[in-house]
Nucleic acid binder design. Structure first.
Length: 171
DNA sequence: GCAGTGATCATA
DNA sequence: ATGATCACTGCC
């Protein structure tokens, strides 16, 4: 089952652990790649000093203020595409960064392996685009989920760089 | 430990 | 127009 917008239209910290074990699926012609999500990070609203939405909407970040379930894809360091999915109500900037699927770890490796780039930015979670997230019945017990601080956000200060918003599944 | 890489945004 | 910054990766 492809996850509907209502799945994502909840507080990002509620959605994040539920998204572990869901399958990220990419279709290119006849070729299909489907891998379970194993690692992700939550970015939660204007008060979160690590969140791109903290300065209000800009041409790049307005997607985060948009509809839950849409993808937010941007380029970092001139080389790597970051894949996020928007959560929560319109007007509230929150999203989840997909950092690992299958045995791939690292957000840049995920997008490189699945050929994900700007074309998916602000696209909804539907099979029509060739990129979607679906539930295949895999359940991750809470004992198999660990949380840690987010990676690469030291600029966010002592509190927001340390909150346990990174979720990792032991599969 | 650090170079590579280019879009983005603030400043002007 | 310019310059600092950056939710990373791979090689030293």
């Amino acid at each position: 089952m492809i996850l509907p917008p209502s799945f994502f239209n909840q507080p990002v910290l509620d959605v994040a652990p539920q998204l572990l074990g869901k399958y990220l699926v990419r279709r290119m012609g006849r070729r299909i790649i489907a891998l379970p999500i194993t690692e992700l990070e939550a970015y939660d609203g204007p008060h979160d000093l690590a969140c791109h939405g903290r300065f209000g909407p800009t041409p790049r970040t307005q997607v985060m203020f948009g509809h839950a379930g849409n993808f937010y894809v941007y380029l970092i360091y001139g080389m790597y595409w970051m894949l996020n999915i928007v959560t929560g109500p319109v007007g509230y900037p929150a999203a989840i960064l997909i950092r690992g699927v299958g045995h791939l770890d690292g957000p840049g490796k995920v997008t490189k392996h699945l050929s994900i780039d700007k074309q998916f930015d602000n696209q909804p979670n539907t099979s029509a685009t060739g990129l979607w997230i679906e539930d295949r019945g895999l359940l991750i017990p809470s004992q198999q989920i660990i949380t840690t601080p987010r990676i690469g956000v030291t600029y966010a200060g002592p509190m927001w760089s340390q909150v346990p918003y990174r979720f990792v599944a032991k599969i």
